[in-house]
Design a protein around this nucleic acid. Structure first.
Lengths: 193, 193
DNA sequence: CTCTTTCTTGAATGTACATTCAAGAATTAT
DNA sequence: ATAATTCTTGAATGTACATTCAAGAAAGAG
């Protein structure tokens, strides 16, 4: 008897970064062995195949994002502050020069989803769940009176999500702090008034 | 002496559709020969290689979009109507079930740009040019008094572009007419007030 | 009608890749 | 210590692919 030697989370985060950097197709197994430090056999043993590694990485990504979300939208923090902090986080990802500029979910969605229904559904569900969490926060914000608007919470959340998708794509052609910040400010204003 | 037998525009539009459907990497030469009706040799003769075909297809895409843009934003049509029509066009693309849901430029940008600086620049320039055209239209709309806002035209155009990027991504997970229309309406309102 | 040029065809080539597997190494149990 | 089990290693395999190329077909020139 013997236990696996590698740290699954570390491996999955490394795989995430690799996939975000080159995209799924262009990330070779060689890239993945280099990034994760695992040999092909180990990867196949642990994750079945390359696609399995992507699935596992997506799940890890979802968990990480979820943890981050909960750490920002805490019960004691005023909603508007939390929302602004959340947006600023997205913003700094967009501006940063590392590979996390794109969201792994949307990147994978645009690259592979058309060909792979299971993956498409998985990703869509994740994104819908994220949107649902935001809807709940908007609802919360309205109930405390912080968010003064007649608009439906679900609608607000969808618009916010759309804005973030757009911001991320925009950042790929215009990675300028000033402009991106302006766009984020505008989005925040449009939501909160 | 003998002339090439194929219609370049038709070939390029077929290639565009193929690339939009499967993405660049996953579209094989076999797919492309089937889609275009050309044999490998002819493709290599006319476009150098697969990447060359993508470049040519991107250029065709740019031209087609430009023509469409000019046909919507004509001098005699009221700006607000034109803007609304433009947005509705995007919307119907998002809702339609064919492959044109995604913009070829942003799809290619997210898939390949990281690896290919020349392509990255080409696409970025195209997108910036689009944004510039919109800026000019917003400026026009302000000068006629149709567009009543204190906001900068360039800023308006950026926000509008961001919204369209977001709408397209959003449509990949929620291809529902009603919700997408709602989002487009909201975007239109936010811009025009 | 014949020659020349250019285009077309699709089988052949080489490469890059995902995947497998058998031998070796490490760990735990007895 | 030894055996039993499970993990690790990386070279070998087969496949899918982009690309090439030489032979054949079509079109125009003389």
């Amino acid at each position: 008897m013997r236990n696996a030697e590698f740290d699954k989370e570390k491996v999955l985060r490394a795989a995430m970064v690799a996939f975000m950097g080159k995209g799924y197709s262009k990330t070779s197994m060689q890239d993945l062995t280099k990034a994760t430090g695992l040999h092909p056999g180990s990867i196949y043993c642990a994750f079945e195949n390359k696609r399995g590694l992507l699935l596992a990485a997506l799940e890890q990504y979802r968990q990480d994002r979820n943890t981050e979300f909960k750490s920002i939208f805490t019960k004691d923090k005023p909603f508007l502050l939390a929302l602004r902090e959340y947006l600023d986080n997205v913003l700094s990802e967009c501006i940063s020069c590392d590979v996390a500029k794109a969201c792994l979910l949307t990147k994978a969605l645009s690259e592979i989803a058309e060909q792979d229904d299971e993956l498409q559904n998985l990703i869509s569900e994740n994104l819908k769940q994220w949107q649902q969490s935001l809807t709940e926060q908007f609802e919360q914000g309205k109930s405390t009176g912080e968010l003064k608007t007649t608009r439906d919470s679900a609608h607000l959340a969808r618009f916010f999500v759309m804005g973030i998708y757009g911001l991320r794509t925009f950042a790929q052609t215009h990675p300028h702090q000033k402009i991106l910040t302006q766009l984020a400010d505008q989005l925040y204003q449009d939501i909160c008034t």
